[in-house]
Amino acid sequence: MLQVENLTVYYQTLKGQVRALENASFTLADGEIMGLAGESGCGKTTLGHSLIHLSPPMTHIGGRVLLNGQELPLADMQKMDAYRFNEISIIPQYAMNAMNPIRKIGQMTEELLRAKKADVKTVMAALKDRLEMVKLPQEVLGLYPIELSGGMKQRMVMVLSTLLDPELLIADEITSALDVASQKAVSEMLVEFRDQHCCNSVIFITHDISILYQIADSILIMYAGQLAEKASTETIIHNPRHPYTRLLISALPEIGVRYSDKRLTGIPGKTPLLLNPPQGCRFRERCPLAFEKCAEVPPFVEIEPGHSVACWKEGSADA
């Protein structure tokens, strides 16, 4: 189980701090696939990376993260190495270029496993089954990354990242570069991986909510560096409470219809810049319900079991 408590991460830049993740708190149950959605630039990748590789210019401002009750040494690059790949792993947004171009994939895998002091023999044997699960031929191990198609590379990195059966897998935009048919296939493979215990919990980052309908147990919506709402997929789709989530969902075409062209852009207004974000609720400028109180940051509160919202119009104050 993953517990994130008041996690705040900024980018230290020459122009100042980019406040990309503000006071994030949520939990992720064992085996839960949580979709993390929001417009491009809202801090999804930042949240994902801070859980595994919080490196400069990212700076850990505050908060903590517990994995199965144990606090992660987020800001300690050396100590975190013990968790990386073993306990927490990532399929990065740039998966297409994630493999060393001048090493055969099998050789690279072995070198990585050996460097991580893993049980190379057992893992390489398990690798064969994993390749089958993602419908890659065994021969890919003898190929160079460039000899694989984009979809194959994506699946190969998926296999690579989960070789040590991590407790937490962060899958960052793994469907974004693919065509609609492959998007479905890859997301289903990820569910299969979870079911077969190749990984425990998953954070599935995407800017395309519709893909989450099929695979996510829960969905966390972010807006401009702040968490907006988290609930089960059912609730987010049929009973969203945060004004931003409601707009997002209503902007989507009907569930089950082709959705890939319609992204999270159907809302008037622009997202604020995170270099100098507005005080209070960052959705204020675009929010149809905004009122005076929204000049203060709304707390992210649980309004019913498993359903949290950060909005002054919701929660205990006045519902």
Binding site: Y83, Y94, N97, M99, N100, P101, L112, K116
Partner: peptide, 19 residues
Amino acid sequence: DYSHYLEALGAPRSLIRRY
């Protein structure tokens, strides 16, 4: 990107440098 990926997986510096 391949260097960043190895870093994220906690590969030792020696391997990343060699690549």
